[in-house]
Computed example of a mutant assay.
Amino acid sequence: MLRERGLRLTPQRQLILEAVHELGHATPESVHNAVRERAAGVNITTVYRTLELLEELGLVNHTHLSHGSPTYHAAGEDQHVHLVCRACGSIAEVDPAVMEPVTDRLLRERDFRVDVGHVSLFGVCGNCKEAE
C-alpha cells in the first residue's frame, strides 16, 4: 500500500506497524517504548506521524479509551466494542452486535451510521463492582 502511494516502507514504519500488532491496544507512547527497544533513534513524533499515515492507509484503527492518547489496533482485527472499567482500567472487548439496537435506531431515526469500531463504553467491571 505504501509503495502504491509513492511511499517507502522504512524500517521505522515497519517497526511501528509490528508494535501495534504485537501490543493489541497500543497508545503512541507504548508503541514508542516497544520500538525504542529495537531502534533507539525513533522519536515519539515519528511514531505519531506514522500511526496517522497507517490509519489513512487503513492498516490500523484508533479509538479513545481514556482522556489521554488514542489507542490503536490492527485494522485486520474483527470490529469490537470496548468496555473500559473506570475503577481498575481493564479493557474488555465485546461483539459489536451488542450495539445493534442503538445503531439500528440511529440509522432509522437519524439516518446516522455508527462506526462501531470506535465505540468505547465506560463503567465498572464485575470484579470492581464486587469489591465495592
Rank of each mutant, 00 (worst) to 15 (best):
T63M: 00
V60H: 00
A39Q: 14
H67G: 14
H62E: 03
N33E: 15
R36Y: 09
A39F: 12
P70S: 08
N61Y: 06
H32C: 10
L53K: 10
H62W: 04
R49D: 03
A34G: 01
T45A: 13
G58C: 01
Y48E: 04
G68F: 06
V31C: 04
S69T: 09
V35L: 11
N33W: 11
R36Q: 15
T46W: 03
V42T: 15
T45F: 02
H64S: 01
H64E: 02
L59N: 00
L51V: 06
T50W: 04
L51R: 01
T63I: 06
E52R: 11
G58P: 01
L53D: 01
L54D: 09
L54V: 07
R49A: 04
N33Y: 04
T45C: 01
N61L: 03
R38V: 14
R38K: 15
G68K: 08
R38W: 12
G41Q: 14
A40E: 15
A40Y: 11
N43I: 07
H73W: 15
E56N: 08
N33P: 05
E55I: 04
L53Q: 09
G41N: 15
V31I: 05
R38L: 15
H62Q: 08
T45G: 10
A74T: 09
H62K: 05
V60S: 01
Y72N: 11
A34D: 09
E56M: 07
E52A: 11
R38Q: 15
G41R: 13
H67A: 13
I44Q: 05
A34M: 10
E37S: 12
H73A: 12
I44G: 04
E37Y: 09
T71A: 15
E55R: 12
P28A: 12
S69Y: 07
A39T: 14
H67P: 08
T45E: 13
V47P: 02
E56I: 03
L59M: 09
A39H: 13
Y48M: 03
H62A: 04
E55T: 08
H73P: 03
L54T: 07
V47L: 06
H73E: 14
E55Q: 09
V47E: 00
L57I: 00
V60K: 01
T63N: 00
V31Q: 02
E52W: 11
L54M: 08
Y48D: 04
L53I: 04
A34C: 10
N33G: 12
R49M: 03
G58T: 03
R38G: 13
L54Q: 09
R36T: 15
N33F: 12
V42K: 02
V60A: 00
A74E: 07
T63P: 00
P70G: 07
P70T: 08
T45N: 11
L54P: 05
G58H: 00
G41E: 15
S69D: 08
A40D: 14
P28V: 05
R36I: 13
T50E: 06
I44K: 14
T71Q: 11
L51Q: 01
V31G: 00
N33V: 13
R36M: 14
E55W: 03
V35S: 12
T46L: 08
H62T: 01
G68T: 04
T46V: 03
